[in-house]
Design a protein around this nucleic acid. Structure first.
Lengths: 338, 338
DNA sequence: CTGAAAGCGCTTACAG
DNA sequence: CTGAAAGCGCTTACAG
């Protein structure tokens, strides 16, 4: 049984193929009677619309792309669900390019996206190295939105958060508790702007409080619990170990919590640990994790809307939406124990 | 600056458009000299291949679809990363249809996938209700692979695990520890075959041990820590409460752990808790979670290979690959405390 | 309100 | 090894 096309439906209904197309896209332009005939014919021949052909004709793929390092993080899952929720009422589907932290892969995927004529691209994560590629993509006319951050480069549309301020707030909170030696377990700040912004926020809070910045208690890790655990072990083994550790993601913090336990330290009595993201397991950590709530789901929805808006306005004006974050105080931080 | 096509490149290189196409797809058919001329011309005009046009011409979209309830679970993330890893060396991209547990949404997404002419579809999760839609999709010639389970229906290709046996093993382990009253926090077994298989495995282990099956200690929940916590509270409030609780996912188990703590019960001394999946946070739970290791990443890779194989063989023979699971014993289960 | 016709940018037999 | 040509299934001005 071959797949039927609009011509087959048209023949069956005794109308032209253009009319069938109209019934699909602009039924209001078609006389109700004709419309019914066509609908019946579609049913009879078992017609299935061919999106690929339509996309080709329109010169636009009805798809939105997502560029992301990894989907292995609840916070990214929230973003994806937000995107999908917002896409649901449209004709768009989501294509995912998952670079698994590899720069070359990422570059390849960006190229594939260009070839696919996407109607928009959401960038969840990218390395600094690939920014030029993104720019090329954008200049070729693809609406592009960066998430998780407000990029310093004003040419990029952003739906993000203020990483600097969020990290600043958390650090300030720890300082307010009385901590003066605060370790940081961060992501790769050499290659990722968003991570660097958090590092800067941490730094500024320290500076304001007149606390010297000490590179010895800063570590750079991939965001997994295992890496967090290793980083924490390292910090705890230090001569002058920190009294509080700010992990720049909850996954890292979870590992840090475990390392503290193994080291015989009670959290928060002997050491404070805080996270970033507020993923679903954060309230269930032992003790419940003090962290920064990031509106991942909302960000996904807004990013899609930003792209849709660009279609309507035809690219008028930059979009720079900064979503609020929130310090969530639970049980993993307390005043230092002297 | 308009986007250039193969005709533009051909004009520049002084060859026919067909030759340009050959340089892209079958360079070995083209004389090296010509090949270079064409490559240079591509560079000069800034040519970007148009995948949409190619897909249209070939009557096949160079994309693989993934049908999934939610991406909010590490185990699904592993699957997705496995899929992407395997797709990386091909020209295929991944489109995700995320139904967020809604049956109607799922049906709509399956329809969209049909219209997209995908080269294959991986089903991570689906409700029983939508099986007929999947069958239609498959019958329309799309290679389709079910994951996470071996479907009872032999018409479906599967790359999954033995849920029945895995749940049986875990239950038997708990019985071996001396438990006779074992609660179960499961997913929606009315609508999801895979969940039902786990329930059956649990049941059979009980039966074999001569322990009566008690519906009072079976709960049905969505797989989130919060739901797990609520389910556990409910079980603990029972007159004759269980001495062990088997949560059919680690997310549920995490919540169960928290509920136990709030109830003043120590795990595993006062109550045993076990999970399923072995996600990244499982070893970092307090205590570390005893669970079932599921090879999500491997499953993703194999599912892609199964689809690619079907392309090559042109649909010869069913694929039924059952991947091994493994009981991972950590610290959350012990003999009952009498 | 409807039809005839052009065209989107490729791939792929078919010739030579 | 290369070219001319047909065709994939739609959408969309343009007529009427």
């Amino acid at each position: 049984m071959d797949r039927k096309n609009m011509r087959d439906v048209a023949a069956r209904a005794g109308v032209s193929q253009a009319t069938v197309s109209r019934v699909v896209h602009s039924p209001h332009l078609v006389k109700p009677n004709t419309r019914q005939k066509v609908a019946a014919a579609m049913e009879e021949v078992g017609y299935v619309y061919n999106t690929v052909a339509a996309d080709f004709t329109r010169q636009k793929n009805s798809m939105i792309g997502l560029i992301i390092f990894t989907v292995r993080s609840s916070i990214h899952s929230e973003l994806i669900e937000g995107i999908q929720e917002e896409l649901e009422s449209t004709r768009f589907s989501l294509v995912i390019a998952n670079s698994r932290y590899d720069e070359a892969t990422e570059r390849k995927l960006i190229q594939l996206f260009r070839e696919r004529n996407l109607s928009g691209v959401i960038v969840a994560e990218t390395t600094d190295e690939n920014r030029p590629e993104l720019k090329t993509l954008q200049e070729s006319g693809v609406p592009l939105v960066l998430t998780w951050q407000m990029a310093a480069d004003p040419d990029f549309d952003c739906v993000g958060i203020d990483n600097h301020r969020s990290a600043y707030d958390m650090t300030k909170y720890l300082i307010g508790l009385g901590h003066e030696r605060i370790g940081l377990i961060a992501g790769n700040f050499d290659r990722i702007e968003r991570v660097r912004q958090r590092l800067e926020g941490y730094r500024r809070a320290l500076e304001e409080a007149g606390i010297a910045f000490d590179p010895a208690i800063i570590t750079r890790r991939e965001p997994s619990p295992m890496e967090g655990k290793m980083a924490m072990s390292q910090l705890l083994a230090l001569q002058r170990r920190p009294t509080a550790v700010f992990a720049a993601s909850d996954a890292l913090a979870l590992g840090a919590l475990a390392a503290s336990g193994e080291y015989g330290l009670r959290v928060p009595d002997d050491i404070s640990v805080s996270g970033f993201d507020d993923v679903d397991f954060a309230p269930f950590c032992v003790p419940p994790l003090t962290t920064v709530r990031v509106p991942g789901y909302e960000m996904g929805k807004r990013a899609v809307r930003a792209i849709l808006d660009q279609h309507e306005w035809n690219g008028h004006g930059p979009i720079r939406l900064c979503l609020p974050t929130e310090l969530v105080i639970r049980g993993s931080c307390a005043a230092p124990n002297r």
